[in-house]
Simulated scan of single mutants.
Amino acid sequence: MEFKPLITLLAIVNPPAIIPFFIYYTQGLSAEQRRHTVQVSAVSAFLVIAGCALLGIRILEFFGISLASFQVGGGMLLLTSALNMLNAKPAEAKASSNDLEAGAEKAAMGDSVAVVPLTIPLLTGPATMSTVVIYAERARNALDMAVLLGYGVVIAVVTAVCFTLAEPIARVLGRTGINVLTRLMGLILAALAVEVMAEGLGNLFPILGRVAGSG
């Protein structure tokens, strides 16, 4: 399997863009509590990716949804996330402001912020889940699926590193640097979203593929 799934996932998850949220939700915690939050966030992100990779297609089959339709819908969701990122907003932040408030309330009641809202919806929101399901369907054999799961491990490691170094990274990049990085990843994600949507539309309407080929 190519590296495109990894690039796409890194663009969507974009852990550096979540650093300000990590700092906000973990302020006042001890060093040990922060380390625990980092570990839980990283493991949870991997579990979400692994779950979508292994069970996503079966869920689609259960609801009678074709992959082509899911590609178009997922591509639109990716494009929406990309547009948010081009405005220097985290991929899921605009659509999930209520979820963030709910996550803060749950944290106040003692629930771990590592899962809500840091992992879901900030790190692995709907756009991430859609992407994993699409690439899981393209896996031709067990090796391809293992590679996709390995990419999930990479995402978890990158998340752990970014959160562990959250304060130094925030100081070095500053708000401007984080915004520039977010916009760059958003541009890459927009191009990938168009590609996913084009493939889905081509499968739904084969005539589009023939017209494009004749052109």
Rank of each mutant, 00 (worst) to 15 (best):
E2A: 09
F3R: 00
L10R: 00
V13L: 12
P15D: 04
P16D: 09
I19M: 10
P20Y: 02
F22C: 06
I23L: 15
I23R: 12
I23T: 05
Q27P: 01
G28Q: 11
L29T: 08
A31N: 13
E32F: 03
E32H: 03
Q33P: 00
R34Q: 13
R35A: 10
H36W: 10
T37L: 11
T37H: 08
Q39A: 15
Q39F: 13
V40Y: 02
A42K: 06
S44M: 12
A45R: 01
F46Q: 02
F46E: 03
L47A: 15
L47M: 12
I49Q: 08
I49P: 09
A50P: 02
A50V: 06
G51C: 08
G51I: 00
C52T: 06
L54K: 05
L55R: 00
I57G: 02
I57R: 15
I59Y: 07
F62Y: 12
G64T: 10
G64N: 08
S66H: 07
F70G: 05
F70D: 07
G73W: 08
G74H: 07
L77S: 14
L78Y: 09
S81F: 03
A88N: 11
K89M: 11
P90K: 02
P90S: 13
P90N: 14
A91T: 04
K94T: 11
K94F: 06
A95M: 13
A95Q: 13
S96T: 14
S97R: 15
A102S: 09
G103M: 09
K106R: 11
K106D: 04
K106V: 00
M109C: 04
D111T: 01
S112V: 07
A114H: 04
V116K: 09
L118G: 03
L123H: 13
L123E: 05
L123C: 10
T124C: 15
A127K: 07
T128I: 03
S130W: 08
T131Q: 05
T131W: 03
V132W: 08
V133A: 09
V133W: 05
A136V: 04
A136I: 04
E137V: 06
A139L: 06
D144Q: 07
M145T: 13
G150D: 03
Y151F: 15
G152L: 09
V154K: 07
V154Y: 06
I155V: 15
A156P: 04
T159D: 06
T159W: 08
A160G: 14
T164E: 14
T164W: 15
L165H: 06
L165Y: 14
R171M: 10
R171W: 09
V172T: 13
L173W: 04
L173P: 01
G174D: 00
R175V: 10
I178H: 03
N179F: 03
L181V: 09
T182F: 07
T182L: 07
M185Q: 12
G186L: 03
G186E: 05
G186T: 02
L187T: 12
L187A: 15
I188D: 01
A190E: 04
A190R: 05
A191M: 12
A191R: 07
E195N: 14
M197C: 14
A198F: 04
E199I: 11
G200V: 01
G200S: 03
G202Q: 10
F205G: 00
F205S: 04
I207H: 05
G209W: 05
V211W: 13
A212H: 06
G213C: 01
S214K: 10
S214P: 00
G215R: 10
